[in-house]
Nucleic acid binder design. Structure first.
Lengths: 352, 352
DNA sequence: CTTTTTTGCACAATCGATGGTGCAATGACT
DNA sequence: AGTCATTGCACCATCGATTGTGCAAAAAAG
């Protein structure tokens, strides 16, 4: 901190100042000095100088030499969503606690973009990659494979690398059962009264739809295909589906399952255009948890996916080095309406 | 793509394959070959080989040599919040469109952590840094300064670097006026009926409180100090403040201004513990926009801060090289209750 | 057919760290 | 005192790119 020179100190600067060789300085500063039998006194001297001059290693140089960068990547579809942003938050905490640096990027659910983004990350020699919610996990896998980059899939599974995902089938069952039971409190529910909106041609959507149909058939006796409306993931498309239903029926279904909080935003768009009576009595299930979504003016059951556990598991698998391309399930939990869970925000340092 | 070798191709590999020198290969692949008078045919040859072998530059090596990494940092308090996550989303898009790589990290509003995280970013030789919502922008400034790193403050201003922030005073005025007018539809409003919760000893909170008080005094004639409850930013603390008020009065204030969506989460925690009647008639203003927050079962006026414009402005300032440490204001907009704005999610690629 | 200019490229130093190897000084042991 | 093991460190090649410089060959000028 004493030195106010514009440029950062290097091991060469410290080498001159201390009279030791650059390699000695390097060894001292990266902790390998005991192994290299550097005298304690020498180490002390150099460490003091380093502190004095605010030395920090140039991680690009280190990375170049050692072909490890200390960067760990997380590829997301989007940032702007509570599920993924809380995943980013957990990821960041865990990466940092391992002494590495998190690199969180999004690829907009575009397979081409996913590959391009990962290429870039590889160019920075990231050490490991978490691929979350990728549209084309296997495509990304190939890119990683070619570069010898260790990686796992989170949230959406691939066939070529280990995957850690929510137990979507079980989560969907819980959620479906919850909304059915709740809806039945208001009177008997017919199969036509229960819909599913959102999701598309991916593994998670399939499993959720399967869970939904299983429970619906078991409890309501049937599930007409028209009740499944996989609108994709965009809010705009989802809103259109609600609008279409509303035009056809003059109301929304009594109860419905929404595939994700992104789709739930589509419901908000619908609501914005319609009076309160339109949805006074609906019961909603949403496969994702959002703290505000839980307090909407109708009952919203939510599924909280345990992204923290998924990240933890992901590291375990990466540490175990080259696990088989197995899919691991993490149990999600059902969140009843009007529930405020504590989350990463509570780790915020705050005054008073 | 032809070569399936484990390791990535380097300019040396291509040099051997093409018969040209490494420096020629380098020039061709980084685009400086015209300046270096490389024959078009040679360039073509090398580029073809590069494609064939899936060459991508080692950005650590490039960064080391040129002391520019192509990384642009964004320091956030937290990811897990719609205001910051949508800022991250805009940031990422803009950084990428400039051909650079975004590096988004959070520091939990901890001044010490902020400095440490920035030190790390500097070790990776990032080229520019956006400091958003920092608790101690000037502390971070000094760290950047020492490393010669260009930076701007976003959201919370510093005194030592250019800052781009919301017009918090004006935003708070709009928001306060909106909730007062709305509350008055239900009957005359006394100064004791209007509170402010959340925020702390930072510039944004000060300005928002000032705007609140200005308008409240003008429209309601007074603003007793007890009506201002700066609880900090944590949801838990905010919930406690609501709880305390409720215990004292048997209800919530008829109308109140919540300093941020993080504080609004505190309100959710309160709501979770109380029956619907407790808050049947409240009017809320929240300084932040959240698509689900906008549809809570009571009117919530929100302020949408234009983080995209802030990022754009930030780049303009950085490009203009060393602007003065001026604070630039960006106008936020008032969002009436039950409004679903389109956002970054709409850029998602989706099927059908 | 020289001389000059231009073209096209190779060479080598450099960025800052890492880690294998070798060698002098010191101490231990006979 | 002579041999041998140990300690403590310096030397140097290396990671993969960038860039200033220099020089031969080709083209233009005379």
């Amino acid at each position: 901190m004493t030195n106010v020179s514009r440029k950062k100190a290097t091991i060469y600067d410290l080498s001159i100042l201390s009279g030791a060789s650059p390699s000695t300085v390097s060894a001292v500063l990266n902790g390998s000095w005991r192994k290299r039998r550097i005298k304690e006194a020498t180490a002390q001297l150099i460490q003091n100088l380093a502190n004095e001059h605010g030395y920090t290693a140039n991680l690009q140089a280190r990375g170049l030499r050692s072909s490890r960068s200390g960067l760990v990547g997380l590829l997301l579809p989007v940032h702007d969503n509570r599920y993924f942003s809380s995943m980013a938050q957990s990821f960041e905490a865990q990466v940092r606690s391992r002494g590495q640096c998190p690199l969180v990027v999004s690829a907009c659910r575009d397979p081409e973009e996913e590959r391009k983004v990962v290429e870039t990350l590889i160019s920075y020699s990231i050490d490991e990659l978490f691929i979350a919610g990728a549209t084309d996990p296997d495509g990304v896998h190939k890119v990683c494979e070619k570069a010898g980059l260790k990686h796992v899939n989170i949230d959406l599974p691939g066939t070529l690398a280990p995957s850690i995902i929510s137990d979507n089938h079980e989560g969907a069952r819980m959620l479906t059962q919850a909304i059915i039971e709740r809806a039945q409190e208001d009177g008997p529910l017919s199969p036509d009264d229960l819909y599913l909106f959102g999701g598309r041609n991916d593994h998670a959507s399939h499993e959720r739809i399967r869970g939904f149909r299983d429970v619906k058939r078991a409890l309501l006796g049937a599930d007409p295909d028209v009740c499944i409306q996989p609108t994709g993931y965009s809010p705009a498309m989802t809103a259109r589906a609600f609008e279409a239903f509303y035009e056809g029926h003059g109301k929304l279904p009594r109860a419905f399952f929404v595939n994700s909080s992104i789709n739930l935003e589509g419901l908000m768009r619908f609501l914005a255009l319609h009076p309160h009576e339109t949805f006074a009595d609906i019961i909603v299930g949403c496969y994702d948890y959002d703290p505000f979504g839980s307090f909407l003016p109708f009952p919203v059951f939510m599924i909280r996916q345990d992204s923290e556990a998924m990240i933890t598991k992901g590291f375990a698998i990466l540490d175990a080095d080259r696990g088989p391309a197995i899919t691991h399930l993490v149990q999600p939990t059902l969140v009843p309406p009007r529930t405020a869970l504590i989350g990463p925000l509570d780790a915020l340092k705050d005054i008073e």
